[in-house]
Design a protein around this nucleic acid. Sequence first.
RNA 1: CUCGCCAUGGUUCAAUGGAUAGAACGAGCGCCUCCUAAGCGCUAGAUCUGGGUUCGAUUCCCGGUGGCGAGGCCA
Length: 587
Amino acid sequence: MSADPKVLLTDLLRAALKSVAPDHADITILLERPKQASHGDFATNLALQLAKPLKRNPRQLAALLLAELPPSPLLARAEVAGAGFINFTLATAAKTGVVAEVLARGADFGRGASKNARVQVEFVSANPTGPLHVGHGRGAAYGASLADVLAFAGYSVTREYYVNDAGRQMDILALSTWLRYLAFFGIEIPFPPNAYQGGYVIDMGRDMRDAHQDRFAGVSVAQVLAGTPGLPAAERKDDEARQQREEHLDALIANAKRLLGEDYAWVHGFALNEQLGDGREDLQEFGVRFDKWFSEQSLFDTGLVERAVSQLERQGHIYLQDGAKWFRSTAFGDEKDRVVQRENGMYTYFASDIAYHLNKYERGFDRIIDIWGADHHGYIPRVKGAIAALGLPPEKLEVALVQFAVLYRNGQKTSMSTRSGEFVTLRELRKEVGNDACRFFYVLRKSDQHLDFDLDLAKSQSNENPVYYVQYAHARVCSVLNQWGGEAAELAAADLARLANERELALCARLATFPETVESAADDHAPHQIAFYLKDLAADFHSWYNAERMLVEDDGLRLARLALAAAVRQVLASGLALLGVSAPESM
RNA sequence: CUCGCCAUGGUUCAAUGGAUAGAACGAGCGCCUCCUAAGCGCUAGAUCUGGGUUCGAUUCCCGGUGGCGAGGCCA
């Protein structure tokens, strides 16, 4: 099939460049798509760039380059314009050729050649301490789309979820579940305000009772509360009261561990598996799949945390102070040093994160992409610092920060705290708005842009969501193709020279930019570019659809137009698939 | 205090350093005897401020102003 006009054009320009300015023949040639149709299909600022080093007038240089440009059937016109641009207008056949290419390659149109590079994308990685909320939803949609775009662009992609199954938060969840469970046996302990309040914890307590009756209930209120400092008055919000509440919670956890003995691990595991399973199911329904669920606990079990810290220690990046082990991250640009192991011997979360990244490097990925919430931005210098301290190349790690999705209900910001239990779950959002609209809406913003998620708007006016605009275009093509009822082979043989009007050529030009849009979205970690592209493609199609009929009497014209429509359908479907959005055949 | 994100029509957002800054919603006027009106056409309407780099800046750099967010021996 016809090679990419962009590549061919670059070669032509290179040839002209060699005779006009042999000393600068290796300069990068940029071909851009002009915003304005009257400026042709491609434009280059080559003459403007060369004007200074060659001390020549840019317009004269452009004219010289044009004069040396080898003749090609590709071009209908090439001319000097503006300050010294060269505008190229492709021959009609070069524009419509893309239709045949799309039909020939099908779902592979736009797929990049293999990059021979392994990329790991780690995302969501939410604590399994409660349902995923709308903030996690954004990370999930963004990460899944980015991973799919990277894979389509030619990378070998591993999608990974880091499970925080070690640490205090999980203990708090286990305790919360146990306390709710005990309440079913009349063992009423005042529920700590800083434990997990959500109704799902009560559900887990009930499930635990249904499965195991009173197996974990052989305790008294006094035993559970033994040695706790008690709770300060609810209205007290000062630091002292807060600290007392945390101490109360820790004492309860210690009591639970002692009273339950070996059963504690069972309760802990029960709560973990419930929440993990719930999250996995939620994500799967959302079209978000992972290749690997990586356990934080496994880092301790395999001794990797210890190994990572001792490796840092051997290389002199660790010092002792106040009984704790500190990583000297200031030596790597961090604003203060960080504790990796507390006085009580417990490793910090940071320590397991160092170990986790050591593990990522040891698995041999060429690129490692971490997708974090924007609140973790301060975390980047210390993690990169630790990587450098371990003697690994920090530039291999790319961190994409996803800004918060701030949720508005009735024009009011909604609280997002997991512990308070006042949040809108991803599941709830999906149910109200629909998976397709959710996925599309989430990636309609650059990831580093704050996203105002107006629930009322998303729920009540979901028909105005741009996703339907794109899907509708797809459904319209399907409907027409169905009414025609012919075979794909007929379309492949269509005489594309019959595509001649402006809207048809504009549509062809749009189709031709799909591969470079994919490439750009992958390079910039910006799946939103796909969403915007699809909106533009759908707009071009709707406009054409209203202006011209496809099912016309003229056999040749009909086939040519149907071929174009089928190509549009294919690219819409491919693009929507990258975003995890369905492409319905009817609406 | 330190750091991050942001500032574009009435509103929500686009724009690899390029030419006349694009859409959508909202406003106004039109289009279904015609392949799906969840659609299309037309009109009005915008780059916070001051410097710098550049042939050229919405874009890059520095300083203001304003908005949002984050900073733990929590995870």
